[in-house]
Design a protein around this nucleic acid. Structure first.
Lengths: 197, 197
DNA sequence: TAGATTGTTAATCGATTAACAATC
DNA sequence: TAGATTGTTAATCGATTAACAATC
């Protein structure tokens, strides 16, 4: 496993900066204005931007256009990635049609399911190798999630976006990001319930 | 805004403990076994469980059944919550049919959309008040997200699960949890790309 | 020059990990 | 009693915030 810092907190804010700046018509913007718009601390914004760009100018702020270039480059948006998705239930369908992945330079090249209106899993490895797929999206029920993950690892996929509600076992050179809807909701419900006393 | 600690990290692990223990047929379990199964640190498991239950027994471990009771009670699973969902595109449909919210004691009682096969927004406030709705799920495009959020606040909703890709402005007694798919994916892509050198 | 704004250093905070003491 | 396992105290780590110095 590689070792140079994780910065997930930072990585999660950068797309928000990008989103906001894409819709910003000014030539320059200050850290204070960004902080207010995105509900972050002012110092935090300056720290984030310092890590990513070569800085703003006192009294003027940051040039929006070059900040955008720097932020996107930092996130490596310019590198295209191809993905496949396995499990074409409602969630799989939703992700497959989602607008907003294009701007990340992600292309979903194949959709698999046991339902034969989609691609058959027997062709999975071939297709992944031919299309040089590096991301796998898992939207199958938890019972079959691990076997799909195994197939993905075997097919040289480097990252898994896991929507099934089970922990996956994969070698350390394959990244897994769990996106468990029910768990995420459980956190919000706990916060709501605690506030209500 | 209430002030007694946030513990989001802890809250996000608890549903995983619960999930695992639901499918565990032993009478007792050790922190080490849980740690291995869920890929957490052993000490972290013990700290988490100490916060939630009244403890295990050295040499024996934790009683699975009472641990489950304590974990669910800590998360307040016993309190039912009613929710509404606005925006019945593919993602809205997926969430509306999602299995796994029931176990959290959440019931989605109404689905709204401008498409008139669903409920009309003009009845929103009435329905929310009648059904005592405390959670709103937003799956509309970002252009209309803020106005839906305003309507929810006005209708006394206490928490918003926001799938639109924009920051919402709400008073501090309404919790917002952002679930921005594209941003979440961006983080994973960044990690994958960095690893590939 | 004065003032606004960036950049940096130090302090705080929270979460995780390590070391070890307590207990069945 | 010895050994396994829990529980707790202290150390570490990372992220955020506060205070202030640098600069245009």
């Amino acid at each position: 496993m590689l070792q140079n810092g994780n910065y997930e907190a930072l990585y999660s804010r950068i797309p928000c900066y990008i989103e906001f700046l894409e819709n910003c018509s000014e030539e320059f913007i200050s850290s204070a204005a960004l902080a207010i718009a995105l509900n972050y601390g002012e110092v935090q914004v300056r720290k984030d931007l310092a890590k990513v760009s070569n800085g703003g100018k006192p009294k003027i702020g940051y040039r929006v256009s070059s900040l955008l270039v720097d932020l996107k480059h930092y996130m490596r948006y310019e590198l295209p990635v191809t993905a496949v998705i396995v499990g074409m239930g409602r969630l799989g369908e939703a992700l497959n049609h989602y607008h907003g992945f294009e701007k990340l330079n992600l292309k979903i090249v194949a959709a698999f399911d046991i339902n034969d209106q989609y691609l058959n899993l027997k062709d999975f490895k071939n297709i992944c190798e031919r299309e040089n797929v590096s991301l796998g999206i898992i939207t199958v029920p938890k019972e079959s999630a691990q076997e799909i993950a195994d197939l993905m690892v075997e097919s040289n996929i480097k990252g898994i976006w896991n929507f099934s509600s089970t922990a996956l076992n994969v070698p350390s050179d394959c990244m897994v990001k769990n996106e468990n809807m029910a768990n995420s909701l459980a956190i919000l419900l706990k916060l709501i319930k605690d506030r209500a006393e």
